[in-house]
Write a protein that binds this DNA or RNA. Structure first.
Length: 462
RNA sequence: GGCUAGGUGGCAGAGUGGUCAUGCAGCGGCCUGCAAAGCCGCGUACAGCGGUUCGAUUCCGCUCCUAGCCUCCA
């Protein structure tokens, strides 16, 4: 029985889809005006994991993750570059797709873009005006009247009156109330714009997600996710817009992932302490190391980004691949281990616990190998592989993975093989001095040897 | 100031009212020509102070500390 922590109630609750066997989920994706960083990678990875697990449970999942391809940041950056805003957004959306593919993320079933939903956005805004929840300000911005929606603040636990008194926002004189937020922005000269009943303009950020999610999934769906920084005001505003426009409940379960931190601070563009996925990947043996690192702590908690931890993740993953190596895969999946794994995942996607179970399986494989029990080793490997498939790890060919290096390779596979042949001859002749000299030479070149019974030697890159 | 998460062994990180997390690193042993890998074993962990309890790291209260949100943000 799957339990999910619902941000709306603050509790873990049994997950029951609104329609039998079907899960409709929407995740706030990227605003693409730059390369994605590790913080974004965590969000992307967390929800990739969640949709994978839901599918593994047999649900027909519709995973929707939007792209914001028009907003202030994009316009600003494009202007700074002297580039067309749509070109910029297109360029970085393509880069994001590349990064996602590199990270092994499954593409969403639907990836709506804000600019493709202008019609729906205008229609929803009009509905909100018609129903009295929104108004046209004197500058032709359309604003949502927060006080018309009494349930405002339920998700973030904020009280409307606290917000008002604590508000540090410069009062926008177009707003009737400082809490109100914009649904449609009138265009200033030279800005990209679309025709609307309120003149040329562009959508506000919050309304996009309400329009896209309800257009694709219907007005009331199962799961809505995003980073915890979106809880307020973005998700709060989405709820207000959607509920008021559609007249139905909006989302059943809200999920928020924790941040990636750098030295105990949130990794973010504004703090300038971010690492792009592209630069980080250059320092790793394989993109899988980053995924494994991200999965090694619970999705709701914070995770500290550091090279030490990445190294630890690398070592641990290596250990799992070593267990898999030469263990065969033809065995039957062990139901008991699998049950333990699912139990961990059923508990609000507890990946650290699931990973611990995988370590247990790995030890069993190694024990079986040591005992010469090939059947048991193969069964363990099949089990480990099946678990890895659910998490999106361990699916590479073990030997190829182990021969991968961190950074550039200093010796080719052929050179290694040649030296190993020489060493083998030396060992056969009991010339251990020469044998050890070759080993030291290889070690210096980042090649680690492992002599097996019977004279064979395995190797991998450090 | 308001609201929300946290504070676990050298590092990372789950979890539990009384028996083991797990991984990395370290130490000892086995194996090995020697290594490596693996296996076996080891290490006074649960911020502080009270309370509930036969018993609390786990429940309750208070204190201290950290992060996040309250403004664009994954």
């Amino acid at each position: 029985m799957l339990k999910i922590h619902n941000s709306l109630t603050g509790e873990k609750q049994e997950f029951k889809p609104l329609r039998p066997n079907e899960v409709r989920m929407y995740v706030c994706g990227m605003t693409n005006y730059d390369y994605i960083h590790v913080g974004h990678a965590r969000m992307l990875t967390v929800f990739d994991l969640i949709q994978r697990y839901l599918r593994s449970l047999g649900y027909a999942v519709t995973y929707v993750r939007n792209v914001t391809d028009i907003d202030d940041k994009i316009i600003e950056r494009a202007a700074a570059n002297g580039e067309n805003w749509a070109d910029l957004a297109g360029r970085f959306t393509a880069a994001m797709h590349e990064d996602c593919a590199t990270l092994g993320l499954q593409p969403p079933d639907v990836e709506p873009r804000a600019t493709q939903y202008i019609g729906q956005i205008i229609a929803m805004t009009q509905t909100l005006i018609d129903k009295g929840f929104a108004y046209v300000a004197h500058n032709n911005d359309v604003m949502f009247s927060v006080r018309k929606f009494p349930a405002y603040g339920l998700l973030s636990g904020k009280k409307i009156d606290d917000l008002r008194s604590g508000s540090r926002v410069q009062v926008d004189d177009a707003k009737l109330d400082p809490l109100d937020f914009v649904l449609w922005k009138h265009a200033k000269p030279g800005e990209p714009s679309w025709a609307s009943p309120w003149g040329e303009g562009r959508p506000g950020w919050h309304i996009e997600c309400s329009a896209m999610s309800t257009s694709v999934l219907g007005s009331y769906f199962d799961l809505h996710g995003g980073g915890e920084d979106l809880k307020f005001p973005h998700h709060e505003n989405e709820i207000a817009q959607s509920v008021c426009a559609c007249g139905t409940p909006f989302v059943n379960v809200w999920m928020h992932n924790g941040f990636v931190r750098v030295n105990d601070e949130k990794m973010s563009k504004s703090l300038g302490n971010f690492f792009t996925v592209r630069e980080v990947l250059k320092t790793l043996r394989d993109p899988e190391v980053l995924r494994f690192f991200l999965l090694s702590s619970h999705y709701r908690g914070p995770i500290n980004y550091s090279s030490v931890q990445l190294t630890q993740a690398d070592e641990t993953l290596l250990g799992l691949y070593r267990a898999l190596k030469e263990a065969g895969t033809s065995g039957a999946v062990n139901a008991e281990w699998m049950g333990q794994f699912r139990e961990a995942m059923d508990d609000d996607f507890n990946t650290p616990e699931a990973l611990a179970t995988m370590q247990g399986v790995a030890r069993e494989i190694n024990q079986a190998k040591a005992a010469g029990d090939a059947l048991k080793a193969a069964g363990g490997a099949a089990t480990l592989l099946a678990m890895g498939a659910v998490l999106g790890v361990l699916q590479q060919e073990p030997d190829a993975y182990l021969k991968r290096s961190v950074g550039s390779q200093t010796v080719s596979d052929a050179d290694v093989d040649a030296l190993l042949a020489a060493r083998k001859a030396a060992r056969a002749a009991k010339d251990f001095g020469e044998s050890d000299r070759i080993r030291a030479q290889l070690t210096a070149a980042g090649i680690l040897l492992e002599d097996r019974p019977g004279g064979a030697t395995q190797w991998r890159r450090a």
